[in-house]
């Protein structure tokens, strides 16, 4: 006996709530007028404006540098950490320690790093943001790779060791290939999180080298311009494509297993 009718009211309310602002942003980005509130005919005017905005372009370049750098470091460190925690340690404390950066409020991590950088008198720049992003990126990569490890069959590793392979050989020939999908997923996660990260970058970046979220923050703070709508639409389109492609890919790899 199922009467799901009533249940679907909050269900649809959730989707309306989640998507109304997005639809408004996208529609308004094609506005020919200057008002962010009333639609006065379609045009690509704001996209042109955006293309000529050097601050946005520089912000995007900075963000991509930070995301690429922190992803590479996070992936290497996170994967090693995950394998080490799963295979060479039984410490619950270490497990909690590895997850800490993922559960700590971003503001706390941000000010802690700001204080630390000031104490060691490090100049701020893109490198300080990269170092900061690796702290949480590594934790997420380690968490994703560990889930993969816990499903992995350990008998192959045992066989490799019994046949006399060194830990290094076992790792590169057996563990790493088994973990590859998890590592890729972890790297993608670290990259996405870094691209979108604002709070930590806000505290650890040099004012002269803002990342894109910092640029967006100052745009949003100092007045509502339809140019933000155009930027929002482009970012939305990119994220949606990436998420859908990733979804397709995981389904594809799952069907091959």
């Amino acid at each position: 006996m199922r009467r799901p009718g009533l249940l679907y009211v909050p269900f649809w309310a959730t989707y309306v709530f989640l998507y109304t602002p997005i639809v408004v942003l996208v529609v308004m980005s094609f506005n020919a007028g200057d008002s962010p509130y009333t639609f006065e005919g379609a045009s690509l005017k704001w996209y042109g404006e955006l293309a000529g905005d050097a601050t946005v372009r520089q912000g995007l370049v900075n963000t991509l540098i930070v995301a690429a750098g922190s992803t590479v470091l996070s992936t290497v460190l996170g994967t090693l950490l995950a394998v080490g925690m799963a295979r060479y340690s039984r410490s619950r404390l270490l497990d909690a320690f590895g997850l800490l950066p993922a559960v700590l409020p971003d503001l706390v991590l941000a000010i802690a790093l700001l204080v630390f950088y000031a104490a060691v008198q490090m100049t701020l720049g893109l490198h300080s943001v990269i170092m900061a992003h690796v702290v949480f990126g590594m934790a997420f990569v380690a968490a994703v790779v560990r889930t993969r490890l816990s499903h992995a069959d350990t008998s192959l590793e045992e066989a490799s060791r019994d046949l006399g392979a060194t830990p290094l050989a076992t790792f590169t020939r057996i563990t790493l290939p088994t973990l590859a999908p998890g590592i890729v997923a972890g790297a993608l996660l670290a990259f996405t999180l870094s691209i979108d990260e604002f709070v930590i970058a806000f505290f650890t970046a040099a004012p002269t080298e803002p990342t894109l979220p910092i640029v967006i923050y100052s745009m949003v703070r100092f007045g509502v311009t339809p140019e933000i709508n155009a930027l929002a639409t482009i970012l939305l389109a990119v994220s949606f494509t990436v998420v859908i492609v990733a979804q397709r890919m995981t389904r594809l790899t799952e069907s091959f297993r």
Partner: peptide
């Protein structure tokens, strides 16, 4: 499920900013 998560993967600041447009005096 993907539809619930999708907005989450877009820029946080822009999602918040959308509400300024929606809720302002002349807003939707």
């Amino acid at each position: 499920l993907v539809a619930v998560v999708l907005p989450f993967w877009t820029n946080f600041l822009i999602r918040v900013y959308a509400w300024v447009i929606l809720l302002s005096g002349p807003g939707l």
